[in-house]
Amino acid sequence: MREITYAEAIREALREEMKRDERVYIIGEDVGRFGGCFGVTKGLWEEFGDDRVKDTPISETAIIGSSVGAAATGMRPVAEIMFCDFMGVAMDEITNQAAKMRYMFGGKVKLPMVIRTPVGGGLCAAAQHSQSLEAWFTHLPGLKVVMPSTPYDAKGLLKASIRDDNPVIFLEHKMLYGVKGTVPEEEYVIPLGVADVKREGRDVTIIATSLMVYKSLEAAKLLEKEGISVEVVDPRTLYPLDEEKIINSVKKTHRAIVVHEAVERNGFGGEIVAIIMEKAFEYLDAPVKRVCGKNTPIPFSPPLERFVIPQVEDIVNAVKSLL
């Protein structure tokens, strides 16, 4: 099967959905001729024109706020926020408008809109361009939150997100844009709310998101050489969350580690740990562990940045500590 990058997979999903449904349009900063700051929308402006690929002034509030208004009146906007860190600029539009409009109106409106935005460190982009803020969004009933790791998942999940009638926060990891993976030529959609077991194992379950899926798989390979069998579960969507697949895995391995890049304190990992405690406590042979970002802003200098983001060796050590 052919291999394409994560960025290409996302672009394919955008192109296919824009061809399929003329209500779908892209809106964001530098998404037009420039092709987006990470090149994700490259070529789409040439193909679809000004109306379908809308380049905006630096106006995150109006990008998201206008998407709410357009979605409520029959369009299906796909907004790009250049860095997840900038979501704060539009946080009222996300928190008080997009997430709540349907509910406040007694279910009488649909808001089919997607906000795509890159998360994560690794580029020495420092504290305002490197955060993983998924927990902000999973804390808001009314939003769906998608966090794909592979090109295959990114494409199928973005197509499902665009077709969904709810606001979806679609979090892409900037270090994954160039990562290749197999993606079939033929069309497919991955439903939201279905986790994927990226590697089967017997001894420990790692629940990892986004880039940490790769680091966990690397750790699993190293541990295999020492006779330790690790299962890696990627929830893929944080809401809706496939609790069943996580719980079933923990019931099988009796040990669990949650790995994410976001800071540990009040991170989404805490939610997964709580679900495991509530639904699989009696199956556990050891306390559930978290391997997460340190509780600091993301620092600039390479050794500092590397230190605060979970690395393969941190995951390996955590697994060993449970056995």
């Binding site: 109306d51 809308k54 109006a62 206008s66 709410v68 208004g69 357009a70």
Partner: peptide, 25 residues
Amino acid sequence: ILGANGIVGAGLPIATGAALSSYLQ
């Protein structure tokens, strides 16, 4: 009626989006 709104000034971008929607449609 796209809603009363409890956040002062929140209707401005929403109305802008409804107008964008009208234009696109």
